[in-house]
Amino acid sequence: MLDDRARMEAAKKEKVEQILAEFQLQEEDLKKVMRRMQKEMDRGLRLETHEEASVKMLPTYVRSTPEGSEVGDFLSLDLGGTNFRVMLVKVGEGEEGQWSVKTKHQMYSIPEDAMTGTAEMLFDYISECISDFLDKHQMKHKKLPLGFTFSFPVRHEDIDKGILLNWTKGFKASGAEGNNVVGLLRDAIKRRGDFEMDVVAMVNDTVATMISCYYEDHQCEVGMIVGTGCNACYMEEMQNVELVEGDEGRMCVNTEWGAFGDSGELDEFLLEYDRLVDESSANPGQQLYEKLIGGKYMGELVRLVLLRLVDENLLFHGEASEQLRTRGAFETRFVSQVESDTGDRKQIYNILSTLGLRPSTTDCDIVRRACESVSTRAAHMCSAGLAGVINRMRESRSEDVMRITVGVDGSVYKLHPSFKERFHASVRRLTPSCEITFIESEEGSGRGAALVSAVACKKACMLGQ
């Protein structure tokens, strides 16, 4: 009897593995994704193909990295998701002549009506938060230079001027797309009239992360975010950046690689679950690469896999709870928690219980395998993109072996128990001629924006502006 049951459990697990095998990517698959990513990057950089390229390769006008001589107080704003952060950054000489960066910050959550109302409502709310922060720190009387981390696709015309191309991540505030974001912020500050600010720089969160990590390690020339969304930036040779005049030196390019796949480059790798996630998203047909990796989508992918296993009578005796059938019910943090389970399955059992399920031991094991399959594919897909960037940098610099540091931020990278190990191992397999160091950014977005502002202020002083 026991043997029969054991055989049935083994057969069930084997069927589960057959279904989950769809998520496995072979090294040849990853090399294919990497080569296609490089081709799209090239198209994004070139003037004649930029418009139709899915990977936009947006110039950021960040050319210099901090040298350690900029000092002063800077205000930093960070808008990239449902939370908005205001930070005071003091850049100065530390002990023994070292450079020191001290920060104080406060988080504000953005109400739904500000995210989806008008641009005026959104930026009025942001300036209200700045006003509140300055009151708390008794700094209303000071006109501070301000660095703005704005983590949406922007076409820069200068370091302090950028046109919002399109909202992502659930934002829909009308009247912002096609307009200068810094102008919208300046107008809102003017409307309030109770404080003055000098907006000197606007950067993407990947750029802010790279600059913040450069402060720790001067070989950091790539910034990457794996959180709600997924994106990367890197220092490109100016001669390859056709959208900006000049051939000397390097400029940081914001790849906006989340949109890779929007022209069909990933079609052969998309599964039924991916198509369902895409169809029910706020932007169907867009940001397809990001939807395979980002935390906004990972939990939902797992939920759809679990429903398939229920329908195949391989999980929960073929019956799903009402909660499990509800879109968004299986949160991405559950994926991390399930994979963090120590082996007694308590954590998995508790999560499934909150979803109205009474799982068996085998159910718990199957749910864990589903989570591992989805998150491992995410790590491997992400590795193909980064390997594409790094191999490109090595080739354009004609280096036999390139040493490089990548600064990384984002909740999936930082909080998932195995993502970074799987990701690092896969990147290294795909970049055999590179020695890569990964560092995690601390308060990256805010500190990085302030350091970019410090560079901009120093330049302005040198130019006598």
Rank of each mutant, 00 (worst) to 15 (best):
Glu237Asn: 06
Leu243Ile: 00
Val452Leu: 15
Glu177Trp: 02
Val62Lys: 03
Met462Thr: 12
Ser69Ala: 10
His156Val: 04
Ala282Val: 13
Pro284Val: 09
Gln219Leu: 13
Thr168Trp: 01
Lys39Asn: 14
Val55Glu: 01
Asp262Leu: 12
Phe423His: 06
Glu265Ile: 09
Leu243Arg: 03
Thr362Ala: 10
Tyr61Thr: 05
Glu93Ile: 07
Ala21Met: 05
Ile159Asp: 00
Leu122Ile: 07
Gln323Ser: 14
Thr116Trp: 03
Glu120Pro: 02
Leu271Tyr: 12
Arg358Pro: 04
Ser263Asp: 14
Gln24Thr: 11
Phe123Trp: 02
Gln38Asn: 09
Lys15Leu: 14
Pro111Leu: 05
Thr405Val: 12
Met8Tyr: 10
Arg325Val: 12
Ile348Gln: 08
Cys457Ile: 07
Thr49Ser: 12
Ser280Cys: 11
Ile390Thr: 07
Met34Asn: 11
Thr362Asn: 11
Glu95Gly: 12
Gly264Ile: 03
Arg308Gly: 10
Gly446Phe: 00
Phe84Glu: 03
Pro432Cys: 13
Val338Pro: 06
Leu185Val: 01
Met402Thr: 12
Asp187Ala: 09
Gly385Asp: 03
Ala425Ile: 14
Met37His: 02
Glu272Val: 05
Trp167Asn: 01
Cys213Leu: 08
Leu314Val: 14
Ala6Cys: 08
Asp187Val: 03
Thr326Cys: 07
Met34Pro: 04
Asp42Pro: 05
Lys136Ile: 10
Tyr349Thr: 11
Gly193Asp: 00
Trp257Asp: 01
Val222Met: 14
Ile351Gly: 14
Thr326Pro: 08
Asn391Gly: 11
Lys346Pro: 13
Asp29Ser: 12
Arg345Ser: 10
Glu40Asn: 08
Ala425Pro: 13
Asp42Tyr: 09
Met87Ala: 09
Arg392Asn: 08
Cys220Arg: 00
Ser453Asp: 04
Asp365Lys: 13
Ala176Lys: 00
Asn231Val: 02
His137Pro: 07
Ala450Thr: 01
Ala450Met: 01
Glu290Asn: 05
Arg394His: 11
Lys414Glu: 10
Ala208His: 00
Thr376Asp: 08
Arg429Gly: 11
Asp267Arg: 10
Gly94Thr: 10
Gln465Ile: 10
Ala188Leu: 11
Arg155Val: 05
Ile126Trp: 00
Ser426Met: 12
Lys143Trp: 09
Arg191Ser: 09
Gly170His: 03
Cys230Leu: 07
Ser76Asp: 03
His137Ala: 08
Lys31Arg: 11
Leu270Phe: 05
Gly183Cys: 02
Gly407Asn: 06
Gln323Tyr: 12
Val335Arg: 01
Pro145Arg: 15
Glu331Leu: 11
Glu245Met: 05
Ser281Pro: 05
Val222Leu: 14
Val203Lys: 00
Met235Val: 13
Thr82Cys: 03
Val427Gln: 02
Arg333His: 14
His141Ile: 04
Leu134Arg: 02
Arg447Phe: 15
Glu177Thr: 08
Val89Pro: 00
Val91Lys: 10
Val241Ser: 06
Gln138Trp: 10
Thr342Gly: 10
Tyr214Glu: 15
Leu58Thr: 01
Asp42Ser: 13
Thr405Met: 09
Phe148His: 03
Arg394Gln: 13
Val310Trp: 12
Gly183Pro: 03
Pro284Cys: 14
Ile130Lys: 01
Arg250Pro: 14
Glu300Gln: 08
Val452Asn: 04
Ala208Glu: 01
Tyr214Ala: 15
Tyr214Lys: 09
Thr116Lys: 07
Asn391Ala: 08
Thr376Gln: 10
Val338His: 05
Val406Trp: 00
Val406Asn: 00
Gln347Arg: 12
Gln138Ser: 12
Ser321Asp: 09
Arg368His: 12
Pro59Lys: 11
Arg43Thr: 13
Ser321Arg: 13
Glu272Phe: 05
Ala11Leu: 10
Asn240Met: 14
Glu399Ser: 10
Gly97Trp: 13
Leu463Tyr: 11
Asp365Val: 09
Val244Leu: 08
Arg303Lys: 04
Phe133Ser: 06
Met107Tyr: 05
Val182Pro: 06
Val222Ser: 03
Arg368Ala: 10
Lys15Asp: 11
Ile211Arg: 13
Gln323Cys: 10
Glu237Ser: 07
Lys172Tyr: 03
Asp274Val: 05
Ser281Gly: 11
Gly385Gln: 02
Glu177Val: 15
Phe330Pro: 00
Ser109Leu: 03
Cys457Ala: 13
Ser100His: 08
Met197Thr: 06
Gly92Trp: 14
Gly299Met: 03
Leu304Thr: 11
Ile225Glu: 00
Pro145Phe: 12
Cys434Phe: 07
Phe171His: 02
Cys371Pro: 05
Glu290Trp: 01
Ala10Val: 10
Lys296Ala: 10
Ala425Lys: 12
Glu28Pro: 14
Ile211Asp: 04
Gln286Asp: 15
Ala188Ser: 09
Glu237Met: 10
Glu96Lys: 05
Val302Phe: 05
Ala370Cys: 06
Pro359Arg: 10
Ser280Trp: 13
Glu95Cys: 09
Glu395Ile: 15
Asp311Gln: 14
Cys233Phe: 03
Thr82Phe: 02
Val389Leu: 15
His50Trp: 01
Gly92Asp: 09
Val401Trp: 08
Ala449Glu: 01
Arg403Asn: 10
Glu96Asn: 12
Leu122Trp: 01
Phe334Thr: 04
Thr49His: 04
Leu309Gly: 05
Cys382Arg: 02
Gly223Tyr: 02
Lys31Cys: 10
Ile163Lys: 02
Thr60Tyr: 01
Glu421Asn: 15
Leu2His: 06
Ile348Met: 12
Glu256Phe: 00
Asp267Gly: 13
Glu93Gln: 09
Asp135Arg: 12
Arg36Trp: 09
Ile351Asp: 11
Glu22Ile: 06
Thr206Ser: 08
Asp363Leu: 06
Leu292Lys: 10
Tyr61Asn: 03
Asp124Val: 02
Arg43Tyr: 13
Ile293His: 07
Leu324Glu: 00
Gln239Asp: 13
Leu2Ile: 07
Gly227Trp: 01
Met37Pro: 03
Val33Leu: 11
Phe334Val: 10
Met121Cys: 14
Arg191Asp: 04
His380Pro: 03
Tyr108His: 01
Cys129Ser: 04
Gly385Asn: 01
Thr149Pro: 04
His156Cys: 03
Gly162Met: 03
Asn283Met: 08
Thr255Pro: 01
Asp160Ala: 03
Ala21Val: 12
Glu157Trp: 05
Arg397Thr: 05
Glu177His: 07
Ala282Leu: 14
Arg46Tyr: 07
Arg327His: 15
Gly444Ser: 05
Thr362Phe: 14
Ile351Phe: 03
Asp158Ile: 01
Tyr349Asn: 07
Glu331Asp: 13
Gly258Ile: 12
Arg186Thr: 04
Met202Glu: 01
Glu196His: 07
Arg429Phe: 10
His380Phe: 11
Ala378Ser: 09
Phe195Met: 02
Leu292Cys: 14
Gln138Ile: 09
Phe123Ser: 03
Ser336His: 06
Leu25Glu: 05
Asp262Met: 14
Arg46His: 14
Gly175Thr: 10
Val253Ala: 04
Gly81Phe: 12
Tyr349Cys: 08
Glu128Ala: 08
Pro153Arg: 01
Cys129Asn: 02
